[in-house]
Amino acid sequence: MILTERFTGLDPRTKLVLVMVLSSLGVILQEVLLLGIVWFLTLSLAALFGVGWRPILRRSRMLFGIFAAMAIIQSVFTTGGHGFLWLGPVSVISSLGLERAGGVVLRLLIVVVSASIMATSSPREIVQGLSQWRIPYELAFMVAVAIRFLPLLRQEALETLTALQLRGVALEQLPWGRRLRVYSYLLMPMIAGVMSKSKELALAVEMRGFRAYSQRTAYRVLRPRPFDYAVGGGMLVGMGLFLWIVY
């Protein structure tokens, strides 16, 4: 896949522009149809970058619950469109509710999937890209650390949930009110874990001379190529045109 290689080999800054364009469109646009178009565009780009279908599918499935909940909430609390399912005077499923919920979920999907394009660059490249954009190295480094730690966080959350259940909390038997309390107990170890880990990490990097010198040299310097300008510029111009045509 030579094409995939060309795209994944893009400057991380170009990818950042791309991700920002897609997620801004996802946030700015209101109509479900337009969001659908952007979603389609995001998917095609993700495919060009060789992002696997399976993680995308898995994430979409997780969002399905949100879609169902949002659809009902929006249907109950908005008046408009026509109702499909009524519970007395209250419309439980209405066309407007479905539309709004669809909008929210499409937005989330656009942001999540476009962000996975960033993951096709190594953390080292991202730090380098950001610091060449004159973002302070400390900040750039933190971004890279965050990217590195996010999957671990997920893993940790799952393990914490396991440990909590093993303490004899039978989640499936608890009524909803208590179950919510249980989830609040999950937050505590996760936040405390993140805090202590970041403190330790900060200390550890300082001990290794992270900020000993104010200047840094980099062995690897990123140079954008014509293709970078073409893709980045193309995306920006495309976004401008798109918004101009629509509004």
């Binding site: 259940q165 093993l166 004899g168 909390v169 989640l171 038997q173 505590m188 170890p189």
Partner: peptide
Amino acid sequence: SLGAIGQAVGYLFQEPERQIFAP
């Protein structure tokens, strides 16, 4: 289910941080 196991079996994890939840 893990909850059912946990009610009969006490499991001590090797890392104590794993099983601390409350303030």
